[in-house]
Nucleic acid binder design. Structure first.
Lengths: 186, 186
DNA sequence: ATTAATATGTAGACCGATCTGTTATTCACA
DNA sequence: TGTGAATAACAGATCGGTCTACATATTAAT
């Protein structure tokens, strides 16, 4: 695959991710994807012969990897788990607010829409959440936390839930309140 | 409005709620709504002249009221906040699993899809979450909890996040893990 | 070095299906 | 007989997906 091809492929994935994050699987029409990416319709099916499901699946996976890496970088600088979670909540809050409450979690909406419908997409979402859970669990275990597995899932649920409430209220207040209470879990 | 009219109106709202819960706003096509409810297409616009947004809005509000009442009943029987939250998580877990991972939170998916797009629907979701937060806060305050406002939002975020992860993994493990760690917050 | 041949990618018209919403007509009960 | 409600045909737009023609690279042969 040449340089040019790889580039439009990436533009398609980025545009899809953006639209998915705002309106989920059904909210991301392929017409909007090609319009936003600048790529023609034919190129979409050249790079993603599996159609919309492949496009969305790779897009979610890519976004999951990106966020995972960002969290890993934050984790290196954070002295303990508590400041790490606070940092993540702060980062996500900034991203959410500056995007006009559009950019929350790129996985959540698709996960909810597809939980009972599409097996391939459900698996992608499950794997992404699993990787985040694992990274968090490892960090907690390394810090000597007494209950790393349960606590990792609990913290992830807390972050996702706070992000959901923040979008629902169009306010970072839920994120701030959760940040204030996070220490009780760690 | 006569008896018959009220009945089909209710059937339309119930069918909409079911489809919304499974696939969100975009996942609930009006063709599916009329097919599931048995009502003809024209009746839909007779009872809901505001179209899909009115139908979905009233459906979300109705579902929010129902769940709020169910929680209130559970709260009367629960000796403390901890057993109340555990009861809610258990109830939601049962509902989720027996529905084949379809019925989670009837508000969440719509809230995420519409956070940045539709002002009326965003407000409905915000109000429903607000009412749940308020009920939880009052209970915590009545129990003499030191930090009812922050804790209420945190607990709601935790429940919503756990429900999201459970649907994403098609497993009640996240709900169980969160249940085990909830006491740290209360 | 130049040209032919092949693979890679672009481009957009087009298809049937489905989407939300409208309309005119008929039904049924008071 | 008059009004609340049911009914289904219909309209325009958009959906995901397919198709063929064209342009641009890359490779190979002369």
């Amino acid at each position: 695959m040449g340089r040019k091809g790889e580039e439009t492929r990436g533009r398609l994935l980025d545009a899809t991710r953006d639209l998915i994050e705002t309106g989920g699987y059904f909210g991301a029409g392929l017409n909007q994807v090609v319009a936003a990416s600048g790529a023609p319709r034919g190129s979409l099916y050249f790079h993603f012969p599996g159609g919309k499901d492949q496009l969305v699946g790779e897009s979610v996976r890519r976004a999951g990897r990106e966020i995972g890496e960002a969290v890993r970088e934050l984790a290196e600088a954070a002295p303990d788990a508590e400041s790490l979670v606070a940092g993540v909540l702060g980062l996500l809050g900034d991203r959410l607010e500056t995007s006009g409450w559009r950019k929350g979690c790129p996985v959540a909406t698709v996960a909810l829409e597809m939980a009972a419908t599409s097996d391939p997409l459900h698996e992608v979402c499950s794997e992404v959440y699993g990787s985040w859970e694992g990274a968090l669990r490892d960090r907690l275990a390394a810090d000597g936390h007494p209950d790393p597995a349960d606590t990792a899932v609990t913290v992830l649920a807390l972050v996702e839930g706070a992000l959901l409430l923040a979008r629902a209220h169009r306010s970072r207040e839920p994120l701030d309140r959760v940040t204030r209470r996070i220490s009780a879990l760690l």
